[in-house]
């Protein structure tokens, strides 16, 4: 029984457009041109309890819209969503107690007060007893390695400390479904790793389901076995991260070390050249005729060493996210 399920979910927006310049401005002032944008189209997926799923795609692909639909902040144009047995759109209190949404670029902590005050407030909102609150704050702050920071005004905290405090505030009511939108945005590498470890620990300890988006592939590769790849509002891939490589890149990377530097030039014609350096050649060769091509090369040239690998997933997805093309 999946804890999150989305069935043919679509979301359509209307936006008004303006031409540049004074003329465009005036025209826009009196008459607005409306265009329809499909943010998300026919999304289908299911997530089981306890899974950590990475939600990836380029900017504007529809990730945040989908996350907000899953929390019930945005209503669907069509389709249906069920999260923890509830329809999010009803924003039932029992539903709200089970979920949380963390947005890396937006903060909910009270800026001019220490995080402790925000925690106390959240505890009261979710109706936690004082003892329980204290216990949970202790537990989470140990997991997050937060200490004295809890008593300093939020504005005085570093970005990493703030994000950790933000996570603590959002998890105080011990939600079982976590929606995380770029939780490591702008953090240095140490804080990123700390946040990742924390999320893995939280997931293990409470069997929480986590759906997270991130531009840092490190977050995805270290946390998520499964990924959803969304592009132009459509679900492009849903499956194991390790299998995504096959889908994204029908090539394998072949590293050849040659005894004869002259032959390197000829070898490079057998595939897509990646790197070429005297005795060393790196080639991309299509999977289906890999053995065939390798046999030919080994027959014709003197090869000292050979290594066949998948192109690194980070690079592939990173390239994809940058170019926005699939």
């Amino acid at each position: 029984m999946p804890i999150i399920s989305a069935r043919s979910v679509s979301k359509i927006y209307k936006v008004s457009e303006k031409a540049p310049g004074l003329k465009g401005t005036l025209k826009h002032f009196f008459e607005r041109r409306i265009r329809i944008i499909k943010a998300v189209e026919q999304l289908n997926f299911e997530i089981s309890k306890g899974e950590i799923v990475g939600f990836i795609g380029s900017n504007g692909a529809g990730k945040t819209t989908t996350l907000k639909m899953l929390c019930g902040l945005i209503h669907l144009s069509s389709g249906s969503i069920e999260v923890a047995g509830h329809n999010p759109e009803q924003r039932d209190r029992n539903f709200l107690r089970q979920i949380t949404l963390v947005m890396g670029q937006k903060q909910q902590l009270i800026w001019d007060l220490p995080p402790m005050d925000s925690f106390r407030l959240n505890a009261a909102v979710y109706g936690l007893s004082d003892r329980e609150t204290k216990r949970r704050i202790n537990e989470l702050s140990t997991m997050l390695e937060l200490d004295n920071e809890l008593y300093r005004p939020v504005r005085k905290l570093s970005l990493g400390q703030r994000m950790k405090a933000e996570l603590l505030a959002s998890l105080l009511h011990r939600p079982t479904v976590l929606f995380l939108d770029e939780p490591t945005l702008g953090l240095d590498i140490n804080s990123q790793i700390r946040v990742r470890q924390f999320l893995a620990e939280y997931n293990y300890k409470y069997g929480a389901t986590i759906l997270l988006t991130s531009h840092y592939m490190g977050d995805i590769t270290s946390l998520c076995k499964r990924v959803l790849l969304i592009h132009d509002g459509k679900l492009f891939y849903d499956g194991l991260l390790s299998d995504l490589t096959n889908k994204l890149s029908p090539y394998r990377l072949v590293k050849l070390s040659l005894t004869d530097s002259d032959s390197a030039h000829f070898v490079s014609q057998f595939g897509q050249l990646v790197e070429y350096d005297d005795h060393l050649v790196k080639l991309l060769i299509a999977r289906e005729n890999l053995t065939e091509v390798l046999t030919t090369i080994l027959n014709q040239f003197k090869v000292k060493d050979i290594e066949v690998t998948d192109p690194p997933i980070e690079q592939l997805i990173g390239k994809l996210l940058k170019s926005g093309n699939i």
Binding site: L22, T25, H28, F29
Partner: peptide, 11 residues
């Protein structure tokens, strides 16, 4: 110029 076009967004 820019501030006027920005303001005129808000009819």
């Amino acid at each position: 110029n820019t501030s006027i076009s920005k303001e005129l967004e808000y009819r």
